[in-house]
Simulated assay, not measured.
Amino acid sequence: MADHLEILVEEPSMEAFLRKLLPRMSPPQKTFEIHPFQGKSDLLTKLCDRLRGYKSWLPDNWRIVVLVDRDADDCAILKAELERICATSGLVSRTVARPTFMAWHVVNRIAIEELEAWYFGEWSSVCLAYPRMTPNIQNKAGFRNSDSVAGGTWEAFERVAKRAGYFPTGLAKIQAAREVGQVYDHDNSSSASFNAFRDALLTAWADGQ
């Protein structure tokens, strides 16, 4: 059972989103800290050394969550790279441990395609944050599957927001992350990648398996 999560994310907007979301999602007496990097390449370059550092002192009741955007990468290849880095560091990932029920230290998760896809996956929360947004966006062609919005999800979110009169000079990603994260309904998302991330956290907090 994990009492504390160390969450590594690739950029500040994901940190901003999670700092608003996780206090509403975490069980009582559970804690977390979020560590942003300067993009995916920065996180991947530094990840092995960071995990090796954790290995030297990580308490038994702590877990590490690594979260990166898929962007245009092949999801299976990216996940395999995260798993390889974890193994090289000497820590055990949840993927490796799960079949044998052994203890694990790290869970790797991928946001598909990026944070803004999670917004499309729970559009009622977006409309709560931004009431002028088109309420039925998930019924429109191209938006029904939030994890496969074509042409870049942050760009798509920016276009929809501008049409509603928000962010006229361009999407303020950190501001949007805070405002959506504050109201995001984590139990009602249709984004498979968000749900996989959420379930990994809840499982770690509940029983560590």
Rank of each mutant, 00 (worst) to 15 (best):
E15A: 14
Q138A: 14
E116Q: 10
M102S: 12
T100Q: 13
V92S: 05
Y119M: 06
D69H: 06
T134P: 10
S146H: 05
V126H: 09
A111R: 00
P28F: 15
F157Y: 11
I85V: 07
A76I: 12
M1S: 12
E10L: 06
A177E: 01
A111K: 00
L8G: 00
N188Y: 12
R63L: 06
S93R: 01
L5F: 15
H186L: 09
H4V: 02
A206K: 14
D147M: 07
R109N: 12
R84T: 03
R98L: 14
F17N: 00
N139V: 07
R144D: 01
G90W: 10
I34V: 14
G208Y: 14
Y184Q: 02
T203S: 10
D187V: 05
A111W: 05
L91Y: 04
G39H: 14
E83W: 04
I112Y: 01
F157W: 10
H35D: 13
G181F: 14
S124R: 15
I112Q: 03
I137V: 13
G170W: 08
E10P: 05
A172G: 13
D60W: 15
R178P: 04
C75P: 11
L201R: 00
S193R: 00
F143L: 09
E122S: 04
S89Y: 06
R98W: 15
F120R: 01
K46D: 13
S41M: 13
C86G: 05
R50A: 14
A204E: 07
N145H: 14
V126M: 10
G90M: 08
S89A: 07
F194E: 05
P99M: 08
W104T: 00
V96M: 13
D199V: 04
N139H: 11
V96N: 06
D185C: 13
K46S: 10
L58E: 00
V106T: 01
M14R: 06
R50W: 15
F17I: 00
I174W: 08
F101E: 06
R198M: 10
L58P: 01
P23L: 09
A16M: 06
D73Q: 07
S125C: 11
S26A: 15
L82T: 00
F17G: 00
D49G: 12
A80C: 05
N145R: 14
A200E: 09
L5I: 10
K79R: 14
R98A: 15
K140A: 10
A192R: 07
M25S: 08
R84L: 12
R63N: 01
A161Q: 02
A176D: 01
D147A: 07
A103Q: 04
L22D: 08
V9A: 04
K173G: 06
A141R: 15
T203R: 11
K20I: 02
A164K: 05
T31V: 08
A103V: 10
